[in-house]
Simulated assay, not measured.
Amino acid sequence: MADPYFFGYGSLVNLATHDFPNPRPARLKGWRRAWRHTDLRPVAFLTAIPDAESEIEGMIAHVPRNDWNALDEREWAYDRVSATQSITHPLTHEVEIAVYAVPNHKHSEPSEMHPLLLSYIDVVIQGYLRAFGPEGADRFFATTDGWDAPILNDRHEPRYQRHQKLTDLESNFVDTRLQSVSAKLIQAT
């Protein structure tokens, strides 16, 4: 029987946000990341969307005892999609890998009513910096759509439940890259 793994491409890349065992860098072919809003959540989040021409980096990790409950609960606004054949990874034993994605008909563009959270972006970029270095974090920006969405600056009072404290270098990296994509930050009230 194949070992169950998931492929994370956002906050799950940041190993400080979970304790799933055996995390490993991996690549998902045929998908791209996008910032999207779903009526199931008040703010916008990342989702993976099919794109035959794209490939994204992320992390795979083991789901012990095939117990998907904790991960399904964490990713409750997403569908779990089998992606084993689309993932390049370093494991040598048989695995079954799933990716979480919001179905296309259930998401829309972010808006001022449903913005991205800077505290969420911080967590994701911190994970990419630690797993893939600055070049990998830059590839994250390049392979993610929706940077024209409004971003709520909640860094000083984080609304994202798994927020992390960034170093000054990490914060500066995020801020510089957001400026380079002409991101629109709005202040929390």
Score class of each variant (00 low, 15 high):
Gly10Gln: 02
Leu71Asp: 09
Tyr5Leu: 10
Thr143Met: 07
Phe141Pro: 01
Val43Ser: 04
Glu94Asp: 15
Tyr120Cys: 01
Ala83Ile: 03
Pro21Lys: 10
Ala131Trp: 01
Pro42Cys: 09
Ile56Asp: 02
Phe140Glu: 04
Leu40Tyr: 08
Met1Gly: 10
Asp122Met: 05
Pro134Glu: 12
Leu185Trp: 03
Ala131Asp: 03
Trp31Cys: 00
Asp51Pro: 01
Arg139Pro: 03
Met1Arg: 12
Asp3Trp: 12
Leu71Val: 08
Ser180His: 08
Val13Gln: 07
Leu28Asn: 09
Ile121Arg: 05
Asn69Tyr: 14
Thr88Ile: 13
Lys106Ala: 14
His93Val: 11
Pro110Met: 09
His62Asn: 11
Pro115Cys: 01
Tyr128Thr: 09
Phe7Ala: 07
Thr176Val: 07
Ala61Val: 06
Tyr160Gly: 00
Trp76Lys: 15
Glu96Asp: 14
Pro4Ile: 12
Glu170Asn: 01
Trp31Pro: 01
Leu116Lys: 09
Ser54Tyr: 10
Tyr120Gly: 03
Leu116Ser: 02
Thr17Tyr: 05
Asp72Met: 08
Thr47Glu: 03
Ala77Glu: 04
Val99Gln: 08
Thr144Gly: 04
Pro25Glu: 03
Arg24Ala: 13
Ser180Glu: 13
Ile121Pro: 00
Glu96Arg: 14
Pro21Tyr: 15
Ile49Leu: 10
Leu28Asp: 06
Glu53Thr: 15
Thr88Arg: 12
Ala44Ser: 13
Ile60Thr: 09
Trp35Ile: 03
Ala83Phe: 06
Ala183Tyr: 09
Val99Gly: 01
Ala131His: 08
Ser86Met: 11
Lys165Gln: 13
His114Tyr: 07
Asn14Val: 00
Leu117Trp: 00
Ile125Thr: 02
Ala137Ser: 04
Glu96Gln: 11
Asn172Ala: 15
Lys29Cys: 12
Ala77Ser: 11
Trp35Leu: 07
Glu55Leu: 09
Ile60Ser: 00
Tyr120Pro: 06
Lys106Thr: 00
Gln126Lys: 12
Ala83Pro: 01
Thr17Met: 03
Ser11Met: 05
Pro150Tyr: 09
Pro42Ala: 06
Ser82Val: 14
Phe20Cys: 13
Ala34Arg: 06
Asp138Met: 00
Thr92Pro: 04
Lys106Asp: 09
Asp138His: 07
Lys165Met: 10
Ile186Asp: 02
Leu166His: 05
Lys165Ala: 12
Glu53Lys: 14
Arg36Tyr: 07
Ser54Cys: 11
Arg155Lys: 07
Ser111Gln: 04
Asp51His: 06
Phe132His: 02
Leu178Val: 09
Arg24Tyr: 11
Ile97His: 01
Gln126Val: 10
Ala52His: 12
Ala149Pro: 05
Ile97Pro: 02
Gly146Phe: 01
Trp147Asp: 01
Arg36Ile: 03
Met59Tyr: 04
